[in-house]
């Protein structure tokens, strides 16, 4: 349960300690990649709670989303259209949907547990 959080911390520490900097021109790609990764992560958590989680789908989704988002941003820069906004919008909407679903599932689970064991209170 706590392993992902430890992983997150390790990642942040690793990133801060290496001191890698991305050139200014590529910051938008990185930010969109982060957004895509977050989207996939929350999608994975939701799938896990719904018990429809599949490792292969998750891993492929993770990488393909990042690459696609960055590619879209790249295309947008070369076409002179802010296409990365489309990716930001799509990922943002999906992120919120996933979060809402996760919340609902957790609430459901919590209330079920409460009903199952009324004597414990």
């Amino acid at each position: 349960m706590w392993l992902p959080f430890i992983g997150l911390l390790v990642g942040i520490l690793l990133g801060l300690s290496t001191g890698i900097r991305v050139p200014d021109a590529y910051t938008s790609y990185l930010s969109i990649a982060v957004l895509a990764a977050l989207d996939t992560l929350f999608g994975g958590i939701r799938a896990h709670l719904e018990k429809t989680f599949e490792e292969k789908v998750f891993i492929t989704g993770f990488f393909s989303n990042i690459i696609l988002a960055a590619g879209l941003a790249f295309l947008g820069v070369h076409l002179g259209v802010d296409l990365y906004l489309a990716a930001v919008f799509a990922f943002g909407v999906r992120l919120f949907n996933n979060l809402a679903q996760i919340r609902r599932l957790l609430l459901e689970r919590w209330s079920k547990k409460k009903n199952d064991s009324p004597t414990s209170l």
């Binding site: 392993l3 992902p4 390790v10 990133g15």
Partner: peptide
């Protein structure tokens, strides 16, 4: 897998 993914995310966030 989640751990690996969160590690990558953390790394990217830190760089960003």
């Amino acid at each position: 897998i989640f751990t690996a993914v969160t590690t990558i995310i953390g790394f990217m966030v830190a760089i960003q």
